[in-house]
Simulated assay, not measured.
Amino acid sequence: MEPVYLFKLIDQQKSWLSTRQSLVAQNVANVNTPGYKALDTLPFARVMERSALEMAGADPLHMRPSPTETMAAAVKPAEGWETTISGNTVSPEQEMIKAGEIRGAFTLDTNLVRSFHNMWIAVVRS
């Protein structure tokens, strides 16, 4: 089992959350655009699975690792609740729910970093 680097993981999740927040804002901005298809990111766990490091071969005859996806490439069409007559798949209610989830995740990440920072300060002072 390899070590878990908490701060690196939180940084990666914040990057993913920023990407998702941008997509939600883009969806809301295009709520009345005819034919616009709502976008969302892959779940964070799937992004992490796809971006895991793989062993590289030193010999040209070794098997090559498959290319990894980045978080920016992990954009997919969102599963909309409804499609309007104009073909637009953005649901304002669904986008607001996603925005709330993003805010909650950012808050959780910030509180985790603050807690670990306070623990480090307590260890240094003792």
Rank of each mutant, 00 (worst) to 15 (best):
V90G: 00
L39K: 09
F116A: 14
V28I: 15
G104H: 15
G104T: 14
T89Q: 02
T68W: 03
A73P: 02
Q26N: 11
V31I: 11
L53P: 10
P65A: 03
V47F: 01
E69Y: 07
A25G: 09
T83Y: 11
A105C: 07
P43N: 10
M71N: 10
A99I: 07
K76Y: 09
K76P: 01
P43D: 05
L9D: 01
S91R: 00
L23H: 01
T107G: 14
V75G: 04
R103F: 15
K8I: 04
P60N: 09
H62P: 09
W16K: 14
E69P: 14
M96A: 09
A25Q: 09
H117A: 09
S22D: 04
T68E: 11
K76G: 04
A72H: 15
T83A: 09
F44C: 05
L23F: 04
P34I: 01
A73R: 13
I102W: 12
H62S: 08
E95I: 01
A78W: 05
S115H: 11
D59G: 04
E49T: 14
A52L: 10
L42T: 08
R20V: 06
N32F: 08
L23E: 00
D109K: 08
I10P: 02
N88E: 01
T83G: 06
F116Y: 13
M1R: 02
V47N: 04
F44W: 01
R125Y: 05
G57T: 05
G87I: 03
P77Q: 14
S86I: 06
E69L: 06
S126A: 14
Q12K: 15
N88T: 03
H62R: 06
E101A: 10
A78V: 04
T110L: 09
S51M: 05
T19Q: 15
M1D: 00
T41E: 01
L61H: 15
S91T: 11
R50C: 12
P43F: 05
A45Q: 10
M1H: 00
